[in-house]
Amino acid sequence: MKHVRLWQGGLLLALIGFWYVMTEPGLIPPMMFDNDRQAAFFFGQPLHVGERIWNWFVVDADIYRHLGVTLVETLLAFGIGAVLGLGGGLWLALAPLASAVLDPYIKAMNSMPRIILAPIFSVWFGLGIASKVALGVTLVFFIVFFNVYQGVKEVSPVVLANARMLGANQRQLLRHVYLPSATSWVFSSLHTSVGLAFVGAVVGEYLGSSQGVGYLILQAEGTFDINTVMAGIIVLTAFALVLDALVGRIEKRLMKWQPKVGETEKL
């Protein structure tokens, strides 16, 4: 594991080094650009990006309010979308008639490019947090929903038959058979959903907001400040990774009952 971390850190340093060499004026002759400053204009410079992040968090300390707004929007969208997706997936997986009736409507809503709903939500819910959360919920819901639905459908008929033979009622089947079967599917969907919740929050902030990291990036784009844009992207990516790591920790705690790959092979 230590070697993997070293390789990961080395790859990151190599990418930053390549970025620095390609965008620092005077280090290499211009290739794709008319002069050696165009690369820095289009891609930013790592030193200036790092300086912008340092000012945000330490010198000016003015990003915390914006970051807090974006994180609140993300967490609300993530939590509400995950709960609705879990409940909807369980319900339709265990209700064949309702599933058959609603199937074309669910597929139609899932095939819709949900980013286009952002302006509609802005009209319905205003330019505050609610419109960003609503957009994030639509992005998270369907991923969790389809994973839970498939997870319940994948329950072994033999396990169900044995549980019914032992006298398990529907509630006990739900708690001891269906939910454990769907748990791994749920957590695999949550890892993807964290990033999409961020997407919903930031896109909503792009369309209309006076605060949030997406708002900072939009303001920087308006003045062609590519370094600030790249800094905002890096900050958002870092916090998305932090949330994904938290989901992974929760998954490990809740999935202790599941045998590891090596243990399964030994068995």
Score class of each variant (00 low, 15 high):
R5D: 15
L6D: 10
W7C: 12
W7K: 15
G9D: 13
G9C: 11
L13M: 09
W19K: 01
M22E: 08
T23E: 00
P25T: 01
M31G: 13
Q38K: 14
A39K: 10
F41R: 13
F42P: 06
G44V: 04
L47E: 12
V49F: 04
R52G: 08
R52K: 13
N55K: 10
N55I: 04
F57C: 10
G68E: 07
T70G: 05
L71I: 08
T74V: 12
A77H: 07
G81H: 00
L84F: 03
G85T: 03
L86Q: 02
L86K: 03
G87M: 12
W91Q: 13
A93W: 05
A95Q: 15
P96R: 10
S99H: 12
V101A: 15
K107W: 14
I115L: 04
F121N: 01
F121H: 00
V123G: 03
V123M: 08
K132Q: 07
L135W: 01
G136Q: 01
G136H: 02
F141T: 02
I143T: 04
F145D: 03
Q150S: 14
S156G: 07
S156L: 12
V158K: 11
A161Q: 11
N162V: 15
N162Q: 15
R164V: 03
M165C: 12
N169F: 02
L173E: 04
L174Y: 06
H176A: 10
V186D: 03
T192D: 15
S193H: 00
V194M: 07
L196R: 05
L196M: 13
V202T: 03
G208L: 06
G214F: 01
L216P: 06
I217D: 00
E221T: 15
I233P: 02
L236F: 02
L243S: 08
L246Y: 09
G248H: 06
I250F: 11
K252N: 11
R253Y: 14
K256R: 15
E265V: 14
L267D: 09
